[in-house]
Design a protein around this nucleic acid. Sequence first.
DNA 1: TTTCTCACA
DNA 2: TGTGAGAA
Length: 115
Amino acid sequence: MLIGELSRRTGVSQRLLRYYEEQGLLVSRRDSNGYRTFDDDAVTTVRQIRALLAAGLSTQVIGKMLPCATGELPELDMCPTVVAEIRRELAEMDDRIDTLRLRRGTLAGYLTVDA
DNA sequence: TTTCTCACA
DNA sequence: TGTGAGAA
């Protein structure tokens, strides 16, 4: 299908679909006129991309996960790469939460009355 | 209708 | 991360 149809079927703008392709999240062929042609399963892929972005993942991380993400939304088949990626992401979040807790404590301490 | 690029939040 | 506009 052409990009316009994929856009209609996913509710994602054509502009954004091109952007996803540019980021390596979406694959397409080109026919003789230079237009992108997408397979039917691109619809599923786009849904997966949207779900993962909504979870706060970067396109870079998503790009690594997608090749081993089979199946329909929102479940993903957990191949080892994906598991490792998620673990790493969680550890990073924990770090940030810790430092935020510290900052919060410090700031709250400046309020003599209450916080 | 699609393509791309530049610029911007 | 995501958009708008202009030109082909």
